[in-house]
Design a protein around this nucleic acid. Structure first.
Length: 496
RNA sequence: GACGAUGUAGCUCAGCUGGUAGAGCAGCGGCCUUUUAAGCCGUUUGUCGUGGGUUCGAUUCCCACCAUCGUCACCA
């Protein structure tokens, strides 16, 4: 639908005619640059002095409202900082120029030069002495009007908003704010990690073998090498190779790709922060998680209290830590570790899950059980710790319980947002875990991890004790911007 | 992937039990040199999501498909 030449509707024809008319009048419709002295908010903030000094200010922006009154005109222009009213008067600009201004439309970019004044109704405005067209709009913009906080004719069609984000951003200022906050969050993450001595690195997105998570990958093909490559599902295995290589602390913020369903908390490509620290264990990562989230809260919210979808959450560390099996056992009223695979499947069926104990591995069965009975109740913030070994092929065996691994997940608002463990660095144990994954794969689990021989070699070379953490950046942004859908925190979300 | 809801002018929406569509804003013309959802007068705009079918006739009924939203399944 997008690649068809759109039929020229009346509105667009009229704008093209205006463009032609402007050119006849000698107006350059798409000039090369415009020197600004101020932004809209600069002017609004310094209005008093600027008005007194009658200093000439130049600013540029997009026309968002035009109120023409015969021989004068009020209009609003919008720049990346905000909006400001301009006042164009025939007397001030001359008749020829005023006729040109009348050919301008909502959506045009203009540059204006003039002095600052305040209107009778108290709005800080620019009295325009001179204006130029900077770019002509020939495709009408949706007109959003507002009075006393109430919005009229909002541009609200989700499909159009996501597919034509450029319009969404022009017309819905709160959308711009969400993405500005997103960038601030990532910046804060970087400085937080940098301050702790972590080195930011980049690892391959195109990988000959995928790993580091349980997920289905996207497959692509390299023509010259004549082989298939995978888009990474996690950074993990490469970052650990770097720990083997001797970097003590590394992190990466980047996109992962998982070939799975989409909903309001899942986009096929999403952003993860992954970090690895040598000589630390998973308790270190809990501290990092708490510290990072608390830092975000104080810088973004100015308070440890987060409101998400009407509910309040206190993010002040430390957060409670609940053991995986304590939660599960309490929820089902039995000791899950004593149950057979079939019995776990039966418990799952009580929650309406149909699972085949023969085909699904024990780890996954337990995970289902957790997802069905525990997860929805985890308001958080909290950590769930010490997961079953079968579920975590890259995590180190628990120091005091052979059937568990030293792993935690962080929860907030009933949703997981991070995952961490004491990294498995025993190459022989790791090989066994891969082999167990291989058996699951043969049994039909297409999310089981393939064996990565080179990664095993790296572990054989020797990885120090290491802690690793992965944080879902999109989800954190959702919390801190109070957005309901992941699509509202990704500029160009995947559409069908 | 399953079920449900929705899809009408550039935008937001109305359209009862089938007779080829309306409003506000935007646009266009006119009046208006401090307006601000500017106002007043006049006026234009539509493959009624797409493709089939039923019918003399479908935006309205039926089927399929596409898209969006929601719930579930899968996962972060």
């Amino acid at each position: 639908m997008q690649n068809q030449e759109p039929t020229l509707h009346e509105l667009q024809k009229i704008r093209r005619e205006k463009l032609a008319k402007l050119r006849e009048l000698g107006v350059e419709a798409f000039p090369y640059r415009y020197g600004r002295t101020h932004s809209s908010t600069n002017v609004l903030n310094q209005a008093e002095e600027l008005e007194k000094s009658e200093e000439q200010v130049s600013l540029a922006g997009r026309l968002m409202a035009i109120r023409l009154m015969g021989k004068s005109c009020f209009a609003h222009i919008q720049d990346s900082a905000g909006r400001i009213q301009i006042y164009v008067k025939k007397d001030a600009v001359g008749e020829d120029q005023f006729d040109i201004f009348k050919l301008f439309d909502i959506g045009d970019h203009v540059g204006v030069r003039g002095t600052v004044f305040v209107t009778h109704s108290g709005e800080i405005s620019i009295r325009v002495a001179e204006f130029v067209l900077l770019s002509k709009n020939i495709h009408p913009l949706p007109i959003v009007k507002e009075k006393e906080g109430e919005v009229y004719d909002a541009f609200s069609d989700k499909e159009l908003r996501y597919r034509q984000r450029y319009i969404d951003l022009v017309v819905n200022p709160e959308v711009r704010k969400v993405f500005e906050t997103r960038t601030r969050i990532v910046t804060i993450m970087r400085s937080y990690m940098d301050a702790l001595g972590f080195l930011e690195v980049e690892t391959p997105i195109l990988q000959p073998l995928y790993g580091g998570a349980l997920a289905k990958p996207f497959v692509t093909h390299h023509n010259v090498l004549e082989k298939d490559l995978y888009l990474r599902i996690a950074d993990e295995l490469y970052l650990k190779r770097l720990i083997v290589g001797g970097f003590d602390r590394v992190y990466e913020i980047g996109k992962d790709f998982r070939n799975e369903g989409m909903d309001r908390s899942h986009n096929p490509e999403f952003t993860m922060l992954e970090l690895y620290a040598a000589y630390e264990d998973y308790t270190f990562c809990m501290t990092i998680t708490e510290g990072l989230v608390a830092a975000l809260a104080s810088e973004i919210l100015g308070s440890p209290e987060l409101t998400y979808e009407g509910k309040k959450y206190d993010l002040t560390p430390p957060w409670p830590r609940y053991k995986f099996f304590d939660l599960v056992n309490e929820a089902i009223g039995k000791d899950a570790r004593e149950l057979t695979d079939q019995q776990i499947a039966d418990e799952c069926s009580k929650a309406g899950l149909k699972l085949d104990a023969g085909k699904t591995g024990r780890g996954k069965l337990l995970d289902k059980l957790f997802g069905a009975f525990v997860e929805p109740k985890l308001d958080g913030p909290c950590f769930v710790i010490d997961y079953p070994k079968e579920l975590s092929p890259l995590a180190k065996r628990h120091r005091s319980d052979d059937g568990l691994v030293e792993r935690f997940e962080g929860f907030l608002a009933g949703r997981e947002f991070c995952n961490s463990f004491s990294e498995l660095n025993d190459p022989l144990d790791q090989r066994e875990r891969f082999e167990a994954q291989g058996l699951l794969r043969e049994a039909g689990d297409d999310e089981a991890q393939p064996l990565d021989e080179d990664f095993l070699t790296a572990l054989e070379i020797g990885m120090p004790p290491t802690a690793g953490l992965g944080v879902g950046v999109d989800r954190l942004v959702m919390y801190f911007t109070d957005q309901h859908s992941i699509r509202d925190v990704i500029l160009f979300p995947q559409m069908r």
